[in-house]
């Protein structure tokens, strides 16, 4: 394919680095490897009801056409930009105005004014997304929301990890590993709680950084209070890719139990590349798009006791666990999660 000038346009909160940035930066490198001229543009944005319309308008006004053959957008409101060949890889809505509207997670009152604001955002989003040359999502969850709220069809394009080849499988150990930021909504506390109820010598390892020291303190307190230090380990620091691969290579399985996420989550995929199955929960959102019950992982109720049962089952039925780990790796291929496929679609 002839090299193109490709702009990767996304919004960001300064100094917050997570999945929303990885998808952009990994794609940048993979496009460069294939000879394209890529420029990544992060524009600051805040999902603040009082200024969100203005911010959306600002994105709309940006002059990108002359610079790029193609513009790929990610986090909202970057999909608002205008470009003759705009490709939206839509990773979530501004959820307060969509599925979380009028829920306990929405701190806006339901008034004529806020409803008018919501309707304006819906209309603007729908128009901007409908004008895209291609519309992709990172999960079925997001595609379903596009259909429900915007009446638009988005093609699911699952994001691969940066270096799948960096992960490997060694001897299966006795640890359930969870490598991701330690945050309330990632619910590592349920994993620690679960360790109170396990019947087997299965162990737990949590790796990652906590942005809120109170949450980390809570995890440590639970461990101390219930004498779990022998069997639950917390590595609170930035985990390098090598360390991550290392932890997974000798684990028994992985756990990833976020609350209502929009995608299967990179941790699930990383575990699969290391031939490890993932334990998740029924209200995790997009994770069950990857994890199939009993085939390449376990999906249980978001309760410590249920998680403990799952851990014990993985420990006792080691052969079954290994089979599920291998099936997880196969699942990556089934879903076509690889950079060649992703880039072929994005540049189509």
């Amino acid at each position: 394919m002839t090299p193109q000038r490709i702009g990767l346009i996304s919004s960001a909160v300064p100094l917050i680095f997570g999945g929303g940035r990885f998808i952009v930066e990994w794609l940048e490198e993979k496009l460069r490897d294939r000879g394209h001229s890529v420029e990544t543009i992060y524009i600051p944005a805040v999902y603040d009801p009082d200024s969100v319309i203005e911010q959306m308008a600002a994105f709309r006004l940006m002059d990108l056409d002359p610079h790029f053959d193609r513009a790929i957008t990610f986090r909202p409101p970057s999909h608002m930009v205008k470009h003759r060949r705009k490709v939206c890889w839509f990773i979530h809505h501004i959820r307060t105005f969509y599925d979380l509207w009028d829920s306990e997670y929405c701190d806006l009152p339901n008034t004529a004014q806020t409803r008018a604001l919501r309707d304006t955002i819906w209309r603007a989003d729908t128009a901007a997304l409908a004008s895209a040359h291609r519309l992709f999502t990172n999960s079925r969850v997001v595609a379903d929301r596009l259909r429900r709220f915007n009446r638009l069809e988005g093609e699911v394009l699952y994001p691969p990890v940066m270096h799948p080849e960096a992960f490997r499988s060694e001897a299966y150990g006795d640890e359930i590993v969870c490598v991701c930021r330690m945050e309330g909504h990632k619910r590592q506390h349920l994993l620690v709680e679960a360790m109170r109820y396990v019947q087997t010598p299965v162990r737990l390892r949590l790796c990652g950084l906590a942005s809120n020291p109170a949450y980390l303190g809570e995890l440590h307190r639970t461990i101390t209070q219930h004498n779990l230090a022998e069997r639950a380990t917390i590595e609170h620091r930035w985990i390098s890719e090598e360390e991550k691969a290392d932890r997974l290579a000798r684990s028994l399985a992985a756990a990833y139990i976020p609350f209502d996420e929009d995608s299967y989550g990179y941790p699930t995929l990383e575990a699969a590349h290391a031939k490890r199955c993932t334990v998740t929960v029924s209200d995790s959102g997009g994770v069950p798009e990857f994890v199939e019950q009993g085939r390449n992982g376990l999906i249980v109720e978001p309760q410590p006791e249920a998680l403990a049962d799952a851990f014990d089952r993985l420990y006792r039925d080691r052969n079954g666990t290994i089979t599920m780990g291998e099936a997880a790796e196969m699942r990556v291929r089934e879903l076509g999660i690889n950079w060649d496929a992703v880039i072929a679609r994005l540049l189509s």
Partner: peptide
């Protein structure tokens, strides 16, 4: 003028 930024 229309953009906003936090967390710094």
């Amino acid at each position: 003028r229309s953009l906003r930024l936090t967390n710094v």
